[in-house]
Amino acid sequence: MKIRISFFKMVLFTALIWAGVSGCAASEQSAGNAQIEDSSAADAERARLESLYWERINASRTRYVQAEVDFMTDMIVHHAQALIMARLAPTNNASDRIQRLSARIINAQQDEIALMQKWLRDRNKPVPLVDFDGIVMKVVTENPDGTISGDEAGQSHSAGGAHGGSPVSRHNHDMLGMLTQDQLEELASVRGNRFDRIFLMYMIQHHEGAVHMVYELFAADGAGNDEEAYRLASDIYAEQVTEIEMMKLMLRDMGEQPPASILPNHNH
């Protein structure tokens, strides 16, 4: 029993500290047998609370709405395109600043993809798995029964791109801010300063798309009552709004005017 060991350690440790700090006379404090007897009742109570904890965590994952499922499914693909863009930075000779930004975007969005996949998996929903072949995205679906379907190797996921019956996303072709495959190719073809500028222009647009998706999600009835979904979406919102500002700063430092916002006014 782990708890016994750690409890014993604690007691031993406390006794040692007491002995060490209080002083110079040797201490013969014992660990206190009565406390150890009490601990089995405490163990039972904690075991009961632990099962209650898991019960409630699992129950909290049944109170979602379809808009949240769509949001996660779409955002995984949306994020994956940001990974494609950011992974070009080292190979296309981006400046140190842009490489640092790209490394952060990769780190952040990879973790968010994992979290969104977990969100879907925890709710027995199909989970998009993304992979890349250069600048071409491949998406397959992990079904709740564990099987993989919808091998879409070579299928491009982008704004206005071909959309051949993707099993995972209903409408990624009209996701705001997604780059077309032509735009991705343009980005992949430029290097150095030019890459920096185009990267920032496109990434700002791409991030604004994510911000828009959060607004759309929260406009749906019942959305955001699932706290994990609310938290994920509002964290993505805050992160992307912040990065948009940072990227605009970077553009201005290069003497460029940031692109006009593509965001519609949401709250009317």
């Binding site: 109170r63 929260f218 749906a220 009835d221 019942g222 959305a223 955001g224 009552n225 609310y230 509002s234």
Partner: peptide
């Protein structure tokens, strides 16, 4: 209170409408 499920009456049922 920031989340979308917080109610004026402290109810635990969440808020179903946007």
């Amino acid at each position: 209170g920031e989340g979308l499920g917080g109610r004026l009456d402290c109810g635990t049922e969440g808020v179903p409408s946007a």
